[in-house]
Design a protein around this nucleic acid. Structure first.
Length: 738
DNA sequence: ATACGAATTCTTTTT
DNA sequence: GAATTCGTAT
C-alpha cells in the first residue's frame, strides 16, 4: 500500500515535480511504480522515459523492479547514471562536438598520467602535484564555464595560471587520443544539447518524462543536461533530500534545488516524511544529529514503527577491540532468531578502516562483502589488460600505449619511450605506428639496437593480437593478449616473494575473463567499444562479487552506503578527525557535510544501531589517542546506552572526556597528534584585521576580507590566491600572519 | 634496463 | 604501515 503522498507522486500526471524524500521513505518504490504507472495507465511508450540514477546498481535495481511490475516492456526504459547516459548520447551524436564515435573514456588515473606528462613537457614548476593540477582542471571543467573560453575564468593565483596552461595541452592530447575524461563526458553532452540542437534533435525530442534520483548529488552541468532533455515536455520529476547531500566535494551543488524552483516555478512539491525503515529510537537519534545542521529547511521525519532496541554507543580501547566487538556481536546474532534474514552493515569514514574488521570476521569464519577499497578495475593487473584492450580498439590511445608498452618488461624503458613519443608527435602518427617504424629503420641511431629488438617484439605482439582478435569476442581477445604476452608468467614473477599475492592477482585476471564472457552473453550488441565503456563507468557498488547471496555482512564506506539498508548497522570510528574527518575542519560547509554523512549512516539501520569509538587508534602506523566524536557527545538522550568493551579503565576515560571538553582542537598539517590549545586566552582581541596577508597550511597565501567573533572563536573570510574565497574558523585553520 | 633497498609521502569520500 | 619514488648496484 502506498500512502497519500507516495500515491500523489506516483500518479502525478504532468508538469514538473520535486519529491523531497527522507531516508527510508519508500522513494525507490515511488520511482518504479511511477514508471510502471506511466507505461500502463498513461500509455507512455517506455523508450520515451529517461530515468537517471546515481549508480549503475540503482539503475539495474530499478529496471528489475519495473520488470516485475509490467514485464519486458520495462526493458525499453532508458536508465543509468549521468555519465553512462551521456556516453550513450555521444556515441551516437558526439561527432558534432568533436567526439569520435569510437571514443575511449579516461578515468581519473589516466587523466592524471596525461597531466603528469604534460607538466613534464611544459617544464611546470614542481610546486604543484599532478593531482592538484588535475583537480583544478576538473573544477574548471565543472565550474559552469561550459564552453572553450577557459582563459576568461576570473582566475587568481599561480595554480590557476599553470592549470590553464596544462589544460590546453591536456585537451589537445585527449583529442588526439580520441579520448574524453569524466568531465568531458558531461560537458560535451551539454554543449551538444545546447549549441548543436539540430544534431541533438533526436534526444531533445525523445523524452516525454525525465526522472532524476538523488537529485541533491547532481552538479550544475548534470542539472542543465537533465533540464535540456526534459525541456520540451517539462515533465521533469526530481527526487532528492538535501539532508543526504554528501558529494559536494565532487561538485554536487544543492543550489540545484533552487535552480529547479526558478526554472520551473509551476512545480508541485511532495514531501515524503514517513519512514518505513527504522525503529523509533533510531529515527530520534538521527534527528538529534541532523537538527543541528544549519540552514536546513524545517522538516521532520516520523515513523509508526516501534521504538525497538536502544541505540548503543560502545567505547573500546583500540581498533582491534572495536573490530572484535563488532565481529562478536554479529556472530551472536547469526546464531540467534531471524539469523537467516538479518543483514549487517559495518560503515566507516575511510577505506583504511576496513582491515581490522576483515581480520576479525575472518577470525570468526564469517563471510563478508567488501565494497570499495582498491576497486577491482583499479587493480594493476586489470588496468594493464584493459589498457591492452583499449590499444587494440584504438591505436591512438596513448595512455594505454604507455601503460603496456613495457608490460611484461621487454626492455623499453623511459628513454626509449620518450624517443618514440617524440617521433610520433613529430610525424603526427600514433605511438604504436612510431614504434613499428623505429623497429625496422636501418642505419639510424634514433633508438639503440637493443631497444630496436624490443620494439620489434612489441610490434609483432600487437599485430598478432589485433589480427587474431578481429571479429572475435572480448573474452577471446583477452585470451590472445594473455597468451601472446606471457601475462601469467609475468604476474607470478612480479610477486615471487609473496605467492599469495600472485595467486590473488591471477584470480582477478580470471574474474575479468568471467566478466567478459558474461558480458558477451548479456548483451546482443556486445562490442569491444561498449565493453570498454561499461568498464570505465562502473562504480564499486556494481563490481563483480562472486558469492553475494549467502553473504549477510557488508563492509563499506559511508559514501557507498547511500541507498543501502541493513537490519543492524555498526557505525564505527566515531572520533574527531575521522567522523568528522580531519580534512573537513577548514570550513563550515565541509563540516556540515560530515554531519549529514553521519545522518546518512545512522538512517541505514532498520532494527538496531551501534556506534563505536576506540580510545586509541593506529594512524600512519603509530598508536594515537583519540577524542570522542562531537556527534556522540550530542546524543544525550537517557535511553541511549553507553558501554565499554575490552580492557579499558572507565574512570580514566571519563577524566579524558571532561578534560577535552574545555579545549578546542587544533588541527595541524601533520596529523591529529595531541594538538590541543586552550581557546579563551588568545581570543579576546581579533588576531587579524581585513586586508592582512595570512598563510594557511594547505591553502597557502591569502588576504583577510572580514573577521567576526563566534563564541570564543573567530570566523574569518579569506581570499586565497589559488583557492578562492573561504570562510574559516581560526581554531581549526590556524592562520598565521604572512 | 632492471632489481633491490632506502627514503619519502600519504589517506576522505567516487562517477 | 603501505605504497610509491628515488638511488645505487648489477
Amino acid at each position: 500500500m502506498l500512502n497519500f503522498e507516495q500515491t500523489q507522486a506516483v500518479e502525478h500526471s504532468r508538469g514538473p515535480v520535486l519529491v523531497v524524500s527522507g531516508p527510508g521513505s519508500g522513494k525507490t518504490r515511488v520511482i518504479t511504480e511511477r514508471i510502471a504507472n506511466l507505461i500502463n495507465s498513461r500509455n507512455v511508450p517506455p523508450w520515451k522515459i529517461l530515468a537517471i540514477t546515481f549508480t549503475n546498481k540503482a539503475a539495474k535495481e530499478m529496471k528489475e523492479r519495473v520488470d516485475i511490475l509490467l514485464g519486458s516492456p520495462g526493458q525499453a526504459v532508458m536508465g543509468g547514471t549521468f555519465h553512462a547516459t551521456c556516453a550513450r548520447i555521444l556515441r551516437q551524436a558526439g561527432s558534432a562536438v568533436g567526439v569520435p564515435n569510437d571514443f575511449v573514456i579516461y578515468d581519473t588515473d589516466d587523466s592524471e598520467s596525461v597531466v603528469k606528462s604534460v607538466m613534464k613537457e611544459l617544464n611546470t614548476p614542481e610546486q604543484f602535484t599532478p593531482r592538484q593540477i588535475r583537480n583544478r582542471i576538473s573544477s574548471f571543467k565543472t565550474s559552469g564555464h561550459l564552453t572553450e573560453s577557459v582563459s576568461s575564468i576570473p582566475g587568481n593565483g599561480f595554480l590557476d595560471e599553470i592549470s590553464i596552461k596544462v589544460l590546453r595541452e591536456y585537451d589537445r592530447r585527449l583529442r588526439q587520443s580520441g579520448a574524453v575524461d569524466f568531465d568531458d563526458l558531461l560537458n560535451k553532452t551539454h554543449l551538444l544539447l545546447t549549441e548543436y540542437k539540430s544534431d541533438a534533435a533526436t534526444f531533445l525530442n525523445r523524452f516525454e518524462h525525465v526522472l532524476v534520483d538523488e537529485f541533491q548529488d547532481t552538479n550544475r552541468v548534470q542539472y542543465e543536461i537533465a533540464k535540456s532533455l526534459a525541456g520540451k515536455s517539462r515533465n521533469f520529476f526530481i527526487v532528492g533530500d538535501e539532508d543526504q547531500s554528501i558529494y559536494s566535494w565532487r561538485a554536487a551543488d544543492v543550489q540545484n534545488f533552487q535552480r529547479f524552483k526558478d526554472d520551473f516555478p509551476e512545480a508541485d512539491v511532495i514531501y515524503l516524511g514517513q519512514n518505513y525503515r527504522s525503529t523509533g529510537n533510531i529515527i530520534r537519534a538521527a534527528e538529534t544529529i541532523i537538527n543541528k545542521s544549519s540552514g536546513r529547511s524545517e522538516k521532520t521525519l516520523w515513523t509508526e514503527n516501534t521504538d525497538g532496541d536502544a541505540v548503543r554507543i560502545m567505547v573500546t580501547g583500540n581498533s582491534e577491540e572495536e573490530a572484535w566487538f563488532v565481529a562478536n556481536q554479529i556472530e551472536d546474532k547469526l546464531s540467534g532468531a531471524l539469523s537467516e534474514t538479518n543483514t549487517y552493515g559495518i560503515l566507516y569514514r575511510t577505506n583504511a578502516q576496513s582491515r581490522a574488521f576483515e581480520e576479525a570476521l575472518i577470525g570468526l569464519g564469517i563471510p563478508y562483502r567488501l565494497v570499495g577499497g582498491t576497486r577491482f578495475y583499479e587493480r594493476k593487473e586489470i588496468k594493464d589488460l584493459i589498457a591492452y584492450l583499449r590499444l587494440v580498439h584504438n591505436e591512438h590511445d596513448s595512455v594505454a600505449f604507455q601503460r603496456v608498452v613495457n608490460i611484461p618488461p621487454r626492455g623499453i624503458g623511459a628513454r626509449t619511450l620518450a624517443t618514440v613519443l617524440g617521433y610520433a608527435h613529430e610525424h603526427a602518427i600514433s605511438a604504436v605506428a612510431a614504434l613499428a617504424k623505429l623497429a625496422i629503420t636501418d642505419g639510424t641511431e634514433i633508438i639503440g639496437s637493443r631497444a630496436k629488438k624490443a620494439a620489434a617484439q612489441f610490434t609483432s605482439d600487437y599485430d598478432y593480437i589485433t589480427q587474431a582478435s578481429e571479429n572475435r569476442s572480448v573474452a577471446d581477445t583477452l585470451d590472445q593478449i594473455i597468451h601472446r604476452t606471457g601475462f601469467k608468467d609475468y604476474i607470478f614473477k612480479l610477486d615471487k616473494e609473496q605467492p599469495d599475492r600472485a595467486d590473488s592477482r591471477w584470480e582477478n585476471v580470471e574474474e575479468l575473463l568471467n566478466v567478459a564472457v558474461q558480458y558477451q552473453e548479456s548483451d546482443d550488441e556486445a562490442s569491444l567499444a561498449t565493453f570498454l565503456e561499461q568498464v570505465a563507468l562502473v562504480s564499486d557498488v556494481d563490481q563483480p562479487d562472486g558469492t553475494s547471496d549467502q553473504v549477510q555482512v557488508t563492509l563499506t564506506t559511508l559514501h557507498s552506503a547511500k541507498g543501502l539498508e541493513f537490519s543492524t548497522v555498526f557505525l564505527v570510528g566515531m572520533e574527531e578527525g575521522l567522523l568528522p574527518h580531519q580534512r573537513s575542519f577548514d570550513t563550515q560547509e565541509m563540516l556540515e557535510e560530515e554531519r549529514r554523512l553521519c545522518y546518512v549512516g545512522m538512517t541505514r539501520a532498520k532494527n538496531q544501531l551501534f556506534m563505536t569509538r576506540s580510545i586509541n587508534r593506529y594512524l600512519y602506523g603509530r598508536s594515537t589517542s583519540t577524542i570522542s566524536s562531537r556527534y556522540l557527545d550530542e546524543l544525550t538522550q537517557p535511553e541511549i546506552e553507553r558501554e565499554h568493551y575490552g580492557d579499558i579503565d572507565p574512570i580514566a576515560e571519563d577524566a579524558q572526556r571532561n578534560r577535552t571538553n574545555s579545549y578546542s582542537y587544533r588541527r595541524n598539517s601533520f596529523g591529529l597528534k595531541d594538538a590541543r590549545i586552550e581557546a579563551d586566552e588568545t581570543n579576546t582581541q581579533p588576531p587579524f584585521s581585513p586586508g592582512d596577508k595570512v598563510r594557511h597550511g594547505r591553502f597557502g597565501l591569502g588576504t583577510v576580507i572580514s573577521i567576526k567573533p563566534d563564541g570564543k572563536d573567530w570566523e574569518i573570510q579569506v581570499a586565497f590566491e589559488s583557492q578562492g574565497v573561504r570562510r574559516l574558523y581560526q581554531s581549526f585553520a590556524q592562520l598565521v600572519a604572512a
